[in-house]
């Protein structure tokens, strides 16, 4: 057995060094190794206790070196557990964030880097969000569109490319080059993504 807790630390490092918003492939091998290591610690503890009891002394009166050994193994298990939870929790956070970014459908390449249970988690979380957004029993709007609520419902845009007339809720707008318009946010959004107009503050 190498140094106690090394593998668990690698696991945490992996997830913390990966870029925010991405999900690195689920490191099944290492997780398993950490669990194995913890089991090994557990066995060591049991063995140590067995040794002490064999000698006929009570646990309370064990030699200090034996007691210390048990404690070290115990702490190593706690540490591994904590590291595993950190790893899984961070991944769970990112999986949830995924629902807000990509919507209900999990992209193929991302799905592959999730573990089986993480995929299940995503489905269930997605269902929850859908129910909240739904018309029946929910708020009835798509809350994932604008994660930060917009200050104003209209935006000012400057036209970069000649686009002719556009029919909006407020009437017809002539999108001539180098003109500025105040449009509804949802009507302007596609034009902004297309690059026909740019937002002006």
């Amino acid at each position: 057995m190498s140094n106690f807790g090394d593998k668990a630390a690698t696991l945490v490092q992996d997830i913390s060094q990966s870029e925010k918003g991405t999900i690195p492939p689920y490191n099944d091998e290492l997780v398993r190794a950490v669990v194995d290591e913890s089991n090994e610690h557990h066995r060591s503890i049991l063995r140590l206790i067995g040794d002490i009891q064999e000698q006929g002394t009570s646990l309370d009166a064990a030699a200090p070196e034996d007691a210390a050994a048990i404690l070290v193994h115990h702490q190593a298990v706690l540490r591994n557990k904590r590291a595993l939870l950190v790893y899984l929790n961070e991944r769970a956070d990112r999986v949830r964030a995924l629902r807000w970014e990509v919507g209900t459908a999990l992209p193929e390449d991302l799905g592959e880097s999730l573990s089986h249970s993480e995929r299940g988690y995503f489905q269930q979380y997605s269902a929850l969000v859908n129910r909240y957004q739904g018309r029946r029993g929910g708020v009835g709007i798509n809350i994932t569109l604008d994660p930060t609520p917009p200050k104003e419902h209209k935006v000012q845009v400057r036209v970069l490319q000649e686009r002719g007339e556009l029919v909006t809720r407020d009437g017809t707008v002539d999108l001539a080059k180098n003109t500025v318009h105040l449009l509804w946010r949802d009507e302007a959004q596609p034009l902004i993504t297309e690059g026909v107009v740019e937002m002006v503050v």
Binding site: H153, D170, D174, N178, T179, V180, H181, L182, W184
Partner: peptide, 30 residues
């Protein structure tokens, strides 16, 4: 602009450099 934005008044602004441009804009009025 600040006033109209605060009231949500939709607007379209056209910079004009001279009478000719103004006249052209007038012709385009629906």
């Amino acid at each position: 602009k600040t006033m109209m934005r605060s009231d949500g008044i939709p607007f379209s602004a056209y910079p004009v450099g001279g009478y000719q441009e103004l006249q052209n804009l007038g012709e385009r009025l629906p």
